[in-house]
Design a binder for these strands. Structure first.
Lengths: 248, 248
DNA sequence: CTAATAGTGTCTTTAAGACAGTATCAA
DNA sequence: TTGATACTGTCTTAAAGACACTATTAG
């Protein structure tokens, strides 16, 4: 406890007795609430560049315009915000396993023509190989981050926020591993890092960083892709938010 | 643009023509929206330890219990979420200048007895000297983070989230400078860092870190506090989110 | 003079950067 | 055997850690 002037127990018990009565008669529409949505930036590395999933809107507002996948929280089905995000991810890609992470919440009077609205933005990172032979929902497509068409609402800005967060975290975490299948070569992993950062990394330094930190484990299996077969590694992490002691 | 299969312009123009009609008849209460609130963890360093502001609730639910300052977004007065947060800060402390930063949004069906609710959490860092001779709103008090009483709703968890973020950012940013007045000695600054981190820092390393990064500037003014007068420094930053190349 | 606080010198350690070198293997 | 890709050795550099040292000033 902090100090001696906390609310007297007696008053508190009285208050609780009438709280039941208060809640019984409470209507959640006593005041105006903003529209609450969840939007997703679903990233994957395709054809050597950072792509994200966009969807052509079927309904008003912004009908027929490209937008980020997302939608309203379903108060009956979604027990929390992340559940809404994962449900949207599943509806659009059929995938349930992916790293998903909250970026930030943007709320203001101007972003949606229907009125004051608030969106909690998540990004998801998915392994491109998990997408093969799995059809996207109709109206959805992958688009290179650098070649995005005009997006509805403030979705271009939201995509930028998510990309900025991804880039930043790529500097000091193991997050990009979640963009690869369970077995990968260090060259593949390095390429993912370089694609996101938009700069090349010294090979020795990169491999030393990964192995010294112990975030990868040799599997003894090999992959023949180029001229020489390469060792396959697996992540040792349960959670990709591992942080390296320094940034690249 | 991404690919050639973007929505045809013709359809888009058609859609926009009817969008006005859609919005004219749109009612934001076509579906149920969660309750949307903003909560604040207002930090300051008082008596050598990290404190935060808590308020005794005057209304149901959780009447007479301690809670974080916060409240509903006012769709008429607040142009965006940060405005709501700053308004709450001003209402509770009288202060308008402070570093304020979004932490994260927590939304689920269980956290508020009134139903599915969603809160966007901010933390504010304020200079303790700015508080002197400025009365708090009634029912509010400063409480050491380590001696918090039971808080209403999930506010103890929210306070923990904010503290964790503050501690984390203290490792690699200049954020704690916002807990001091414009002129301060390096020893004072170091003490702030040590209080938040809960560990002592080597003096030479600390001073070198600050001066080498150029985040502080000698003012030529001195302060007599202990046995020997100490140089007063000022921040060179417009924005305290400056990041050092490595963590402490 | 003494004690306490402010502030410095300098060696070590850690992990990244640079870059040249060796290893393996398909064609 | 050539050339491309995988992988290593090792020197340099940047910045933190350790810790002993000097400087200043009130009492």
């Amino acid at each position: 406890m902090c100090g001696l002037d906390s609310p007297p127990n007696f008053n508190r018990i009285l208050a609780m007795a009438t709280e039941r009565e208060y809640l019984r008669t409470y209507s959640s529409r006593h005041f105006e609430a903003p529209l609450a949505t969840v939007d997703l930036v679903i990233f994957s590395i395709l054809k050597g560049s950072l792509h994200l999933l966009i969807i052509e809107r079927e309904n008003f507002p912004a009908k027929r315009q490209w937008a980020l996948p997302g939608g309203f929280v379903d108060l009956r089905r979604d027990k929390d915000l992340e559940t809404t995000a994962r449900r949207k991810l599943r509806e659009k890609t059929g995938l349930t396993l992916a790293h998903i992470e909250q970026v930030q919440t943007v709320g203001n009077a101007a972003r949606d023509p229907r009125g004051w609205s608030l969106t909690t933005l998540y990004f998801a990172l998915i392994d491109a190989t998990a997408l093969e032979h799995r059809p996207l929902v109709s109206g959805a497509k992958w688009c290179a981050f650098n070649e995005l068409p005009t997006l509805a609402f403030d979705h271009a800005m939201l995509a930028g926020l998510a990309a900025k967060r991804l880039l930043n975290k790529t500097r000091y975490t193991a997050l990009p591993m979640s963009l690869l299948p369970t077995l990968f070569t260090l060259t593949e992993l390095q390429t993912i890092y370089e694609t996101i950062l938009g700069q090349s990394i010294d090979k020795k330094a990169f491999r030393r960083r990964m192995t010294d930190a112990g975030v990868v484990r040799e599997t003894g299996e090999f992959k023949v892709a180029g001229k020489r077969q390469a060792q396959l590694y697996a992540s040792t992490l349960s959670d990709y938010s591992f942080e390296f002691p320094r940034s690249v």
